[in-house]
Computed example of a mutant assay.
Amino acid sequence: RLDPFRDFFARFYKGVDGLFKVSANSDANIFLLDSERIAVAAFNSCDRNDCFSMQGAISKDELARCHLDLHDSGKTFALRIAVWHHNIEGPPHRSDYMDVDTVRSMIGKNFRLGLHGHQHKAQAEPQHIYLPDRETMAVVSAGSLCAGEKELPRGVNRQYNIIEIDDDYLAATVHIREMGIVNVFNPALLHSLGGVSYVKIQWGTPKTSVGSMAHPIVEMEQQLIQNAERMLMTGNPLAAIDLLTPMKESINGYARRLYVQAASEAKMWAEIIAVTAIPQSIEELAIRIEACNKSGKFDQAKIALDQFGAQLHAPAALVRDLKSKINAEQAMRS
């Protein structure tokens, strides 16, 4: 039944680089977004579904295998998102929806945002599981962008969602767009949302295997630092810089030290000058002066030494040595 879709899937992703685990024959494909901070698992919710059995279902084996793939990757994800087709509730005379216990299984595997369709209308709600502490997953339904009059519920127009995830990966804003006139979409002012076009959703922080509170962003940064250190120690400073670049705006501590050292080994003098505008250590001051010397910016080197040498309590012998290097480099250039 799914052969036409699988053929299309294979053609669509043929030649696409950077896919985590994607196969036309898989019922659980995994994609990575936001510099690998977000894992998106796309599930087939038509397991055992046919003309005699209309309800949605996701294979427990596929769900477990997806969880192991994410775990065994060694990566720390700030957010895990699950995507499937069927809604998780419906009216008494319908059976074409998915058992909500499947979503609870996803929560136990640290998924915190679920996206689905099928019911042709926008909806956002929290789902809870007690493990024994309450953990939360936000489930968002998208309206249909292309359904016709017969498929759309009464009073519902064509819709789509824009999901804006907060910087801490613990909440998001769902913006709902609805077609007002032909092919023109506007913010949907829905009565179910209090007459606004958006809704704020939140979810709980994942727990570790021993039940303590996980800190995925901190763990992810620590993992990046460890990988960058390994790249630098094995003689690949450019790879270390690539790994640390997402942290560049607020880089500090050991990560900053690695970044400056890697830039020095890669002879990225302009980058060093930009990052070390305010040196945080004597070592960083010395590297900044070297970068200024190599770039021919001797005035900046002298200003940095005069301004920050005393602030950082640089030894007098080191200050004399750095001044000599500035003067010698300047003399050679002239």
Rank of each mutant, 00 (worst) to 15 (best):
I278H: 08
L322C: 06
A270P: 00
A188F: 12
L170R: 15
K323A: 07
R177Q: 12
D168H: 10
S144W: 01
G253K: 09
M231Y: 11
I201F: 04
V275L: 15
I251Q: 09
H93N: 15
D167F: 13
F77W: 02
S250I: 05
N25Y: 08
R134T: 11
D321V: 02
H116Q: 08
E178M: 03
Q222Y: 08
E265W: 09
A255I: 01
F185T: 01
A266V: 03
F5V: 13
S35W: 05
A291Y: 06
P153H: 13
I201Q: 04
L322K: 04
I272F: 06
D47T: 13
A331F: 06
L170K: 13
H118P: 05
E89D: 13
A57D: 02
C51T: 07
H118S: 08
W84M: 02
A274D: 15
G296I: 05
P91N: 05
K121T: 05
V182T: 09
E135N: 09
D101R: 15
M98H: 09
I217C: 08
N327P: 00
H215E: 12
P206R: 01
E178H: 01
A317N: 14
N183A: 14
I162D: 08
D47H: 15
D166T: 12
E151A: 14
R80F: 11
P246L: 03
R288M: 08
K207M: 10
I282Q: 13
M332R: 15
A266D: 06
R80H: 15
A42K: 06
K121H: 10
V103E: 07
E290R: 12
K207W: 05
P315A: 11
D167Q: 15
K323G: 09
